[in-house]
Computed example of a mutant assay.
Amino acid sequence: MIIHNQVQFVTINNDQAGQRIDNFLFTRLKGIPKSRIYRLIRKGEVRINNGRINPEYKVQAGDFIRIPPVRLAKKQKNVISAKLGKVAILTDYILYEDQYLLVLNKPSGMAVHGGSGVNFGVIEALRALHPEAHFLELVHRLDLETSGVLLIAKKRSALRALHQQLSQKKIQKQYVALVKGQWPSHIKVIQVPLLKVISQNGERIVKVNSNGKYSETYFQIKERISNATLVNAFPITGRTHQIRVHAQYAKHPIAYDNRYGDPNFDKELTFTGLKRLFLHASSLIFIHPVTGEKLTFNAPLDQQLKICLALLRKE
């Protein structure tokens, strides 16, 4: 059993301030699946200053948190080995590393963290590779099937500084996506409210809904290829599945999107051998949290995406 059998009361200090409550709980409740933690938040079992909160709430110094007891059956103990193939290969995907941060070209098909049926993700793998590291936390997230630039903080002070840049929209993210049909030249920005719905099995689905949160993405045509368009996407806000839902809303869904895509479009691409979501975080620009230097990181497409484009261009 994984047991946290007593109510915990925690007062947030200055070092802990600025992080999202879900990320704080992931660290605090080691071994508890992400879906279970989100359920605790949704049901109001986690309280801050005696009130309910949502998963996006950022804890502040002095916040008083009540964490309920949690008891879950554990099927088996999973010890992540640094020698495990999927873990060890991550070293080949590191774009940059210093004592404050690490930049990774995350491969498609690997979650950013464990939970919801996933034994481990990028952050757990990196901790296995760096057992000497006292602190390793995600600055932002990428979907399971999305590849590309992922930023990890190696110090709490760096995490706070980078989260501040995110909140002030000073971090520039660029994605590349292959979408269905000919993207209209006049659609340069999509601004719609997005509402996140969590089904009973814990799967998150996002819909355009007037009750949702404001979201904004800029789109730029990169290349027209056959019955598809390669686009650059620049998200201004950071909502869950934002680019994928915005592409669907524009009636040009992303290739091989198993939640928001078009199966008929995917069938047209079968000859390319594509078997993953064609969404890649191609570039990230931010200010180094200590040196103040402006950094730009570009992540190359993986072989599967390159081959898909090459075959489409021959068409």
Results as ranks from 00 to 15, higher is better:
303 Q>V: 05
153 A>Q: 03
250 A>H: 07
232 N>M: 14
12 I>W: 00
216 E>P: 08
117 G>Q: 03
194 L>Q: 10
208 V>L: 01
221 I>N: 02
52 R>Q: 05
63 D>K: 06
283 S>N: 14
166 L>H: 10
201 N>I: 10
116 S>N: 11
122 V>H: 02
227 N>T: 13
69 P>R: 01
271 F>A: 05
301 L>S: 08
40 L>P: 00
221 I>L: 11
1 M>H: 05
97 E>Y: 09
255 A>Q: 09
146 T>W: 08
222 K>F: 08
203 E>H: 09
110 M>V: 05
23 N>H: 02
9 F>K: 13
231 V>K: 09
296 T>E: 12
143 D>I: 08
225 I>G: 13
236 I>Q: 05
159 L>N: 12
291 T>L: 00
217 T>N: 14
217 T>H: 13
102 L>K: 15
238 G>Y: 06
167 S>Y: 15
19 Q>Y: 00
8 Q>E: 03
278 F>S: 03
105 N>C: 00
213 K>G: 01
83 K>M: 04
128 A>Y: 08
287 I>E: 09
182 Q>E: 09
248 Q>D: 12
144 L>A: 15
242 Q>G: 03
230 L>H: 10
127 R>D: 09
61 A>L: 14
4 H>V: 07
239 R>T: 01
231 V>G: 11
70 V>R: 00
109 G>P: 01
32 I>T: 06
244 R>L: 15
310 A>T: 11
117 G>T: 05
35 S>H: 13
271 F>T: 01
63 D>V: 12
303 Q>M: 12
238 G>P: 03
75 K>L: 09
114 G>M: 14
263 P>R: 04
65 I>V: 11
63 D>G: 02
263 P>S: 07
141 R>A: 01
186 H>K: 07
141 R>Y: 05
108 S>I: 03
146 T>K: 05
198 I>N: 00
66 R>M: 12
115 G>D: 05
230 L>D: 04
214 Y>D: 12
184 P>M: 08
158 A>E: 04
7 V>P: 02
82 A>N: 01
27 T>Y: 11
202 G>A: 06
191 Q>P: 10
10 V>R: 01
178 L>I: 06
266 D>E: 11
184 P>N: 07
150 L>H: 07
103 V>A: 12
22 D>V: 02
231 V>A: 14
85 G>Q: 03
256 Y>F: 13
81 S>C: 05
14 N>T: 09
136 L>G: 10
292 G>S: 13
62 G>K: 00
61 A>Q: 13
168 Q>N: 10
172 Q>T: 10
196 K>C: 12
241 H>Q: 14
159 L>S: 07
136 L>D: 00
195 L>R: 14
288 H>D: 00
139 V>R: 01
242 Q>H: 07
304 Q>M: 15
158 A>Q: 09
274 L>D: 06
18 G>T: 03
299 A>Y: 04
212 G>Q: 06
304 Q>A: 05
110 M>N: 07
298 N>D: 11
257 D>M: 09
234 F>L: 04
102 L>I: 04
27 T>V: 11
126 L>E: 01
283 S>W: 13
281 A>L: 07
92 D>R: 10
84 L>I: 08
24 F>L: 07
40 L>R: 00
